[in-house]
Simulated scan of single mutants.
Amino acid sequence: MLGTKYVRSRLDRVGSREPLLNRIDISDRTLKWLFLLPSVAILAFLAIYPFIQGIWMSFHEWPLAADTRTWVGLANYEALVESERFLGSARATVVFTGVSVTLELILGVALALYLRSLTGNWRPIFRTIFILPMVMTPIATGLMWRLLLNGQIGVVNWMIINFLGMTPPSWTSSPTVAMATVIMIDIWQWTPLIVMIVYAGLLSIPETMYEAARVDGAPKLAVFRHITLPQIKYMIGIAVVFRLMRSFRSFDIIWLVTNGGPGTATEILNIYLYRVAFVNLQGGEAAALGIILLVVTIAITMGIIRGLGMQ
């Protein structure tokens, strides 16, 4: 009987206590950071440790097939800069990224303007059509276009021969045509991303600005130059940054369609990095190339941000 009373009194005292967090004198701001700290620590470890490890590897001769690690300083970077294949891959990257992103930007802005001009009933239909290529995985896209451009069973060659009466080009055999082919596929898949970002910016422009321009009798080109373009320049900048970062990391489509060929015509830096790391098994040189890619991407991104005054 006495034991039962003792247990009940203990339970009553425990139940009457305030929760631990209420009894600790701590601000809500600090409490939020305490809850976020484990997740932030894990993400920081997963992001910072590989980066530091990559920098450390880039200063070593680090064959992935052996256990030897030899400090070489900047020798890996010097070897890359003096390599003709690296310079060729850098030129291919500049051509691929520059042409594809430029054309995607022009087409994306034009299609976004067209999408905004449509009536409410047609907008959802065309918006769905525009976004379809982007939702496909790059591997599926590469395999699809590899079949479409096949010289024997490809539908594209069949249509060119039967409907246009022309000889189809060698899509992946000629260096110039192969680069144009992978650029075309990249434009087909990633123009919708720019369309959606720019279209969201167009919807945020007040209609009163266009009404005032119509009252003043401003031509369409002037309206676009002085009203539309200044209002969506930040959205265009965001779209270009996203596409540049993604374009530098392109691999799947080019590898599946051309395998970096013919020769090294479409071997951009990301494919060259793959071959250095997993074909030549040169971990140190691959790490140095990865650091160079990262620095170039950050520099271009910061240049765009500063150019648009977004900092």
Rank of each mutant, 00 (worst) to 15 (best):
I205D: 06
Y234A: 14
P230G: 11
L221Y: 11
Y199T: 02
R214S: 13
V215T: 10
A218N: 01
F224W: 12
A200R: 08
E207I: 11
E211M: 03
I205T: 12
T208C: 00
T208V: 12
R214I: 12
A222Y: 08
A200P: 04
P219L: 08
I197D: 05
V198T: 10
S204K: 13
M235C: 01
P230F: 06
L203V: 13
E207P: 00
I227D: 02
G201H: 08
M196T: 11
L229D: 02
L221A: 11
V215G: 06
I232L: 04
T208D: 15
Y199H: 09
M196A: 10
Y210S: 06
V195H: 03
G217E: 11
L202H: 06
A213T: 02
I227M: 03
E211H: 13
L203K: 13
K233W: 01
Y210F: 15
T208E: 15
Y199E: 00
M209V: 12
T208L: 11
P230D: 10
Y234P: 00
A218S: 11
K220R: 12
F224G: 00
F224E: 00
M196H: 05
G201D: 03
K233E: 11
V198P: 08
R225P: 00
G201C: 04
M209I: 13
E211S: 13
V195N: 03
F224S: 07
P206H: 13
F224P: 01
Y234G: 11
D216M: 01
S204F: 02
Q231N: 14
I232N: 08
A212N: 06
E207V: 13
L202E: 01
V195K: 02
M196P: 04
D216R: 05
G201P: 05
L221I: 12
M235A: 15
I232P: 03
L203Q: 15
V223T: 15
H226G: 02
I194M: 15
T228R: 04
L229M: 14
Q231V: 02
L203S: 14
L203T: 14
V195D: 01
